[in-house]
Design a protein around this nucleic acid. Structure first.
Lengths: 205, 205
DNA sequence: GCTTTTACAATGCAGCCGCAATGTAAAAGC
DNA sequence: GCTTTTACATTGCGGCTGCATTGTAAAAGC
């Protein structure tokens, strides 16, 4: 029976269990035995697929990143072929906000890993590239959204992209902490988009 | 020799050691023995002043909050009696950004506690009040800063306050992660303030 | 068919954990 | 001066940790 198992699949299964543990009790509750129990497998198996705990953590971090990437890609694809830039921006950012329990769980895990990587800079380096790519994409959409504005009302798209991503991150964190309700965060996000792109315009012909 | 010791002082001493450990190795490295060693005292003494680890953590969390509160209060006071609202806003927010090693350390600890409270909602409740007060203050300053703008260019101050605080938080996190340099964050912050308050005006008579 | 490799499971171990219990010495209160 | 209280230091215990080791059974390769 051995031999023909998909390693990546097993690792993903274990990483999923890890994320469930982390979402509920925090990363410090993540141990080989806890994760194994959550995944319904033996601790030995976890050790078989990850030689060290650190290897498992690094893999799980990558999975978290891919999760949110997949989420935003899917949401963007659902908008069809040529969505208005502002609509696309809003859709992507809202998708990353912890607005339902699934995204709250993901958010808690992401936050835990944020703190985790803050004291392990070498692990964090892999994330920089993703951030840079995202910023680049945001800046391009902002530029497109600004096309209809008078030139003197346009903000520097690169700076605006940094600000916009920061707003999303910050709103997400305050939402996770339950500091204010979802509507407050959404209203602030829309206000911010108004400032950057100009107010929404009806696009009917 | 016993009997005349300031309990609060000792607890602060221990909490400081805790924060040093947390800043360097993360909250999961915080143990009674580690903290005691960092503080240069016996583990027994730590136990004497905090009956449980949770009590110690809660106390340290409060200290973190007070630290940043004191920091921003001091920075604001240094501006004199009637600073321009926009100057006050910028000074306060910049003070909260992790721009030097001291603030980076504080930031790492704050981030760790953010993740910590995310899975312990009861502990987090105490922070909501502080956020609400800060938002209120920011909104008032934004309102004042907008006084010179044409009415149709004014943003809702309450929404703007939420967005502004979120921007600061987000920028701080990306700075801690080393995703971009300080100048990028500062430029984005200034751009954002431009959007909310209008560009800087020279105040010379 | 026999060997090798793979996929686990089980056990064990040294080290750290929070915490309780106990001991001790000095100041405070009477 | 004697008792009580306070301020620690020390020790120990049960439990959990990551990880190395060993065992076992089944498929793959020849």
């Amino acid at each position: 029976m051995p031999k023909r198992v998909d390693h990546g699949e097993r690792r993903a299964l274990i990483a999923d269990a890890l994320m469930r543990v982390a979402a509920e009790h925090g990363l410090e509750a993540v141990s080989l035995r806890h994760v194994a129990a959550e995944a319904g497998v033996s601790p030995g198996m976890v050790q078989h697929y990850f030689r060290t705990k650190d290897e498992m953590m690094t893999f799980a971090l990558a999975v978290v990143r891919e999760h949110s990437e997949a989420r935003v890609t899917r949401a963007a694809a659902a908008l069809g072929d040529h969505p208005a830039p502002r609509t696309l921006l809003r859709t992507m950012l809202v998708e990353l906000l912890p607005l339902d329990e699934a995204r709250r769980a993901d958010g808690r895990v992401a936050l835990a890993f944020l703190a985790y990587t803050a004291v392990r800079p070498s692990v964090a380096a892999a994330l920089h590239q993703g951030t840079a790519a995202l910023l680049d994409f945001l800046a391009r959409q902002i530029r497109a959204a600004q096309a209809t504005r008078p030139i003197d009302q346009r903000v520097d798209p690169d700076r605006a992209a940094v600000g916009l991503l920061a707003v999303m991150e910050g709103l997400g964190i305050y939402l996770l902490g339950g500091h204010y309700p979802a509507e407050t965060a959404l209203a602030a996000l829309d206000s911010h988009l108004d400032l950057i792109c100009g107010p929404v315009v009806d696009e009917a012909p």
